[in-house]
């Protein structure tokens, strides 16, 4: 039941975003849009309730969302910019030294590991290739391996994704 409500509300918010400027009855929405939106959100919520929410209501906390936003705009975006400049450098010079390494970020939840994997994919010279389903270890393709990182196995995640797991732990766990 709670999952149904959550899904419905999130869908409704999305719907409202999509239909901004439809009228002036309720700020920038019209009554009809809201009505139809509620109906459609209910339908979606009903269908997607068990898929979207998986016995894990941690993400309801608004502080986590705040941290998420800060994370995306702050370290993540900076990391992404660095990554791209790095890739630009590689593209132009052609100097690469690739390899696949295994890291253990010690994240428990699915959402966390997913977020980390996506962050890794978008940030400096790394690309998550595979995941160990049991231990939540990531296999990362690294475009320019640092020698010192290879000394310890599995590789310390700090080399691959500086502080991301910490942020993500704060967001998702």
């Amino acid at each position: 039941m709670i999952s149904f409500i959550i899904t419905t509300v999130i869908c409704f918010i999305t719907y409202l975003l999509l239909t901004t400027g439809s009228g002036t009855d309720v700020w920038i929405w019209s009554y009809e849009e809201i009505l139809i939106g509620i109906i459609l959100s209910l339908i979606t919520g009903f269908i997607a309730r068990n898929v979207f929410v998986k016995n894990n209501l941690r993400m309801l906390n608004p502080i986590r969302w705040l941290i998420f936003l800060v994370y995306v705009i702050g370290p993540f975006f900076v990391g992404m910019a660095k990554a791209n400049i790095d890739v630009a450098y590689r593209v132009i010079t052609g100097k690469i030294k690739p390899g696949i390494v295994r890291i253990s970020p010690n994240l428990k939840t699915d959402l966390g590991i997913t977020m980390l994997a996506n962050s890794i994919t978008l940030t400096p010279g790394t690309l998550s290739v595979d995941i160990d389903e049991d231990e939540n270890d990531l296999y990362v393709h690294w475009i320019n391996i640092k020698e010192e990182a290879l000394k310890k196995k599995p590789v310390d995640y700090k080399y691959v994704c500086n502080g991301f797991p910490k942020w993500i732990r704060r967001i998702a766990e």
């Binding site: 030294k97 690739p98 390899g99 390494v101 295994r102 690309l127 290739v129 595979d130 393709h141 196995k153």
Partner: peptide
């Protein structure tokens, strides 16, 4: 990024080895 991950994983599983790889941990998985 999810798509990229999926492709990378698929590529690895379909037998494409990373070219000039220094290290390949995944091989041992």
């Amino acid at each position: 990024p999810t798509g990229a991950h999926a492709i990378a994983r698929a590529a690895y599983r379909s037998g494409v080895k990373p070219a000039a790889a220094v290290v390949d941990d995944l091989k041992n998985k």
